[in-house]
Amino acid sequence: MTYKAILNGKTLKGETTTEAVDAATAEKVFKQYANDNGVDGEWTYDDATKTFTVTE
Rank of each mutant, 00 (worst) to 15 (best):
M1T: 14
V21M: 13
Y45P: 00
F52G: 00
G41F: 05
Y3W: 06
T2M: 13
F52H: 00
G9L: 14
K4L: 07
D36L: 12
E19L: 14
Y3V: 03
Y3G: 02
V21G: 09
E15R: 07
D47W: 09
D40L: 12
E42Y: 13
E27I: 11
M1Y: 15
Y45V: 02
D47V: 10
G14V: 14
F30S: 00
T55C: 07
Y3H: 03
Y3D: 03
T53P: 00
E27N: 05
A24H: 09
E42R: 09
T16K: 10
Y3S: 03
I6A: 04
E19K: 13
T53I: 09
D40V: 14
D47L: 07
E27G: 08
N35T: 14
K50T: 03
A34M: 08
D46M: 04
F30L: 06
D40F: 15
G9T: 15
D22M: 03
K28D: 05
A20N: 03
K13W: 11
T53N: 05
V39S: 02
Y45A: 01
E56S: 08
T11S: 11
D36Q: 12
T53M: 09
E27V: 07
G14P: 03
E27A: 11
A23I: 09
E42K: 10
T18G: 02
T25Y: 07
A26R: 01
I6C: 07
T44L: 08
E42I: 14
D22Y: 03
A5E: 04
N37M: 15
V29M: 09
A48N: 10
T51D: 00
T16F: 15
E19W: 15
N37Q: 12
G14R: 12
G38T: 03
K31M: 09
Y33S: 00
D47A: 14
E56C: 07
M1D: 13
Y45W: 04
T51E: 03
V54G: 02
K4V: 09
A48V: 11
Q32V: 08
K50N: 07
V54R: 02
G14I: 15
A20F: 02
A48P: 07
V54D: 00
T51A: 03
K10H: 12
V54I: 13
K4Q: 05
T44N: 08
T18M: 09
Y33V: 05
T16E: 05
A5N: 03
F30D: 00
K4W: 10
L12T: 10
A34S: 04
D40A: 11
K4C: 07
A24Q: 12
A26Y: 00
A5W: 12
V54S: 02
K31N: 03
K50F: 09
A5S: 04
E15Y: 14
K13I: 10
N8I: 14
T2V: 14
T17R: 08
F52P: 00
E19P: 05
A23L: 09
A34Q: 02
N35R: 15
N35E: 14
G9R: 03
G14D: 10
T16H: 12
T11W: 13
T44Y: 11
T2F: 10
T25S: 13
N8G: 04
T16I: 15
L7C: 07
Q32M: 10
D46R: 03
L7A: 02
W43M: 04
F30H: 00
T51Y: 02
Y45M: 00
G38V: 02
N37Y: 13
A34L: 06
Y45G: 01
I6F: 07
K50S: 05
V21S: 11
K28C: 10
A26N: 01
K50I: 02
L7I: 15
L7D: 01
T55F: 08
Q32D: 06
A48R: 11
E56D: 07
K13P: 04
I6Q: 05
T18P: 01
M1N: 13
T16C: 15
A48L: 12
F52D: 00
Q32C: 06
T25C: 08
V39Q: 03
G41H: 02
T16W: 15
T53H: 08
M1V: 13
T17F: 14
T16V: 15
T11H: 13
K4M: 07
L12C: 15
V39D: 01
T2E: 08
G14C: 15
N35I: 15
D40N: 13
T25N: 07
Q32P: 01
G41Y: 05
V54K: 01
F30P: 00
T2R: 12
E42A: 10
K10V: 13
K31C: 06
Q32Y: 05
G14A: 14
D46N: 10
V21Q: 12
N8Y: 11
F30M: 02
G38H: 09
I6T: 05
T18R: 04
N8S: 07
A26L: 00
A23K: 13
A20K: 03
N8P: 04
D36G: 05
N8A: 07
T16A: 12
E27S: 07
E42H: 12
T49V: 05
G9W: 07
A20G: 03
T55K: 06
T2S: 07
K50C: 05
L12E: 05
D46G: 00
V39R: 02
A23W: 13
N35Q: 15
V54A: 03
T17M: 10
T11I: 11
E15T: 13
L12Q: 07
K28N: 08
T16R: 11
D36M: 10
K50R: 14
K28V: 09
T25M: 11
T25F: 08
L12R: 08
D22H: 04
E42W: 12
E19H: 13
G9H: 06
L7H: 03
T18I: 14
L7K: 00
A5Y: 10
T51S: 05
T53S: 06
G9E: 02
K28R: 12
T16G: 04
V54Y: 08
T55P: 01
E15P: 04
E56I: 08
T49H: 05
G9F: 14
V54E: 00
D22I: 01
D46Y: 05
L12H: 13
A26S: 01
Y3F: 13
D46L: 04
L12V: 13
